[in-house]
Amino acid sequence: MRNARTPSAPRHSRVLIIGSGPAGYTAAIYASRSALDPVLIEGPQPGGQLTITTDVENWPGDASVQGPDLMARMSDHARHVGAQIISDYIVEVDLSKRPFEATGDMGDRYTADSLIIATGANARWLGLASETRYRGRGVSACATCDGYFFRDKACAVVGGGNTAVEDALHLANFASDVYLIHRRDTLRADKTNQARLFAHPKIKTIWNAEVAEVLGDGGKVTGIQLNHPVTGEQSTLTVDGLFVAIGHDPATSLFKDKLAMDQEGYILVTPGSTATSVPGVFAAGDVQDKHFRQAVVSAGMGCMAALEAERYLIDKDAAAALAEDVRPAAASSDVVHHAA
């Protein structure tokens, strides 16, 4: 945390959006077009996970676009329609009072009548320097996003849960060969997925193995080095791509014990909605979506959250106006009594 400065008066908005990326920027666009004058706090990684993605070929309307360019366009769009975008990082929120209050890294305070959470999630990585070096050049954490680039090539998937198995099955639609690498001798994935995996002619499972190094020619992945702890041996596997599928961590620690979450830390919402357990607080994108994790899905949720925030504020204003209208015109001591 940076050195805090003397805080100024809170900046108030009708809608405060915490987090950027497709969900946050889309929410800002829709809230702006509804004349709600939203404030968006970008967070530690403006633009989210797509800023570390190269080619995006599944964004509707773009045959191919660079991830950072797509996020820059969304940010520009949000600013164009009137959203205030602030470079800050929220370190504390208070959802117990109205208006809601959030505190930034330097001590700046933000209050709002409604709140949209779009802080996203982060893929878990293996922690190898070579993995980082080749990220976006053969190493990926999203088979749905990048599988198409590996048509007729060999790929490896690391993991043992449903995500890893589903990624392997998805990649088998494109790749010539798929290797599922798991550090144990049994999978955690459900039996139906396992049956599909083991029956697929393109997929081979490598048991009791760990990825020790990602190999490459400086420009792209050429293979991986495996450790086999049971035997103590090492081996090299020639592949063009490595997909890491060992889970994601939603960026929701800020809201722990303040919103209802599942055991993995994903924010729980009303089915078919972005509404959380606290009225006026909405969650969009990967903070509540553990299944799809796609930019277009997050953008759709950002739209939903903005529209639901607008409806919440309309209802809130209407209730306040009604309460004002029905207040007693005078106290009982002021009533004039007429003689019969």
Score class of each variant (00 low, 15 high):
Arg5His: 15
Thr6Pro: 00
Pro7Asn: 07
Ser8Gln: 14
Ala9His: 06
Arg11Tyr: 05
Ser13Phe: 01
Ser13Met: 04
Gly21Trp: 05
Pro22Asn: 10
Ala31Lys: 11
Ser32Gln: 06
Arg33Asn: 07
Leu36Phe: 07
Leu36Ala: 06
Leu40Ile: 10
Leu40Trp: 06
Leu40Val: 04
Glu42Trp: 02
Pro44Ala: 13
Pro46Leu: 01
Gly47Val: 02
Gly48Glu: 09
Thr51Leu: 09
Thr51Phe: 10
Ile52Asn: 09
Thr54Arg: 14
Asp55Trp: 13
Asp55Arg: 14
Glu57Tyr: 11
Asn58Lys: 06
Trp59Glu: 05
Ala63Gly: 14
Gln66Cys: 12
Gly67Tyr: 02
Pro68Ile: 06
Pro68Asn: 08
Asp69Glu: 14
Leu70His: 10
Arg73Gly: 00
Asp76Lys: 15
Ile85Leu: 14
Ile86Ala: 04
Ile90Tyr: 01
Val91Phe: 02
Val91Ala: 11
Glu92Phe: 05
Glu92Arg: 15
Val93Leu: 05
Leu95Trp: 13
Ala102Thr: 04
Asp105Asn: 13
Gly107Thr: 11
Tyr110Met: 03
Ala112Gly: 02
Ser114Ile: 00
Ser114Gln: 03
Ile117Val: 15
Gly120Cys: 07
Asn122Pro: 00
Asn122Cys: 07
Gly127Pro: 05
Gly127Met: 08
Ala129Trp: 05
Ser130Lys: 03
Ala141Lys: 06
Cys142Tyr: 13
Gly147Ser: 05
Phe149Met: 10
Phe150Trp: 09
Phe150Glu: 05
Arg151His: 14
Arg151Met: 06
Cys155Asn: 05
Cys155Gln: 02
Ala156Lys: 11
Asn162Asp: 15
Ala164Glu: 03
Ala164Lys: 05
Val165Pro: 02
Glu166Asp: 12
Leu171Pro: 01
Ala175Val: 04
Val178Leu: 10
Val178Tyr: 03
Ala189Tyr: 07
Asp190Ala: 06
Asn193Lys: 15
Ala199His: 12
Lys202Phe: 03
Thr205Trp: 07
Trp207His: 05
Asn208Arg: 14
Glu210Asn: 13
Val211Asp: 07
Val211Pro: 11
Val214Gly: 03
Asp217Ala: 06
Gly218Asn: 12
Lys220Thr: 12
Val221Phe: 04
Val221Arg: 08
Gly223His: 09
Gln225Glu: 14
Leu226Pro: 02
Thr231Tyr: 10
Thr231Val: 06
Thr231His: 08
Ser235Met: 03
Thr236Ser: 12
Leu237Ser: 07
Thr238Arg: 13
Ile246Cys: 09
His248Cys: 00
Ser253Gln: 14
Asp257Thr: 15
Gln263Tyr: 00
Gly265Arg: 07
Tyr266His: 08
Thr270Gly: 00
Gly272Lys: 10
Thr276Pro: 03
Thr276Ile: 11
Phe282Ile: 02
Ala283Ile: 00
Asp286Pro: 08
Asp286Met: 04
Lys290Tyr: 07
His291Ile: 11
Ala295Thr: 04
Ala295Met: 05
Val296His: 09
Val296Pro: 00
Val297Gln: 00
Gly300Asn: 07
Met301His: 08
Gly302Ile: 04
Gly302Glu: 02
Leu307Asn: 13
Glu308Ala: 06
Arg311Phe: 01
Arg311Ile: 04
Asp317Asn: 12
Ala318Trp: 00
Ala320Leu: 11
Ala320Gln: 13
Ala321Trp: 01
Leu322Pro: 00
Glu324Asn: 11
Ala329Lys: 13
Ala331Tyr: 02
Ser333Pro: 00
Asp334Ala: 15
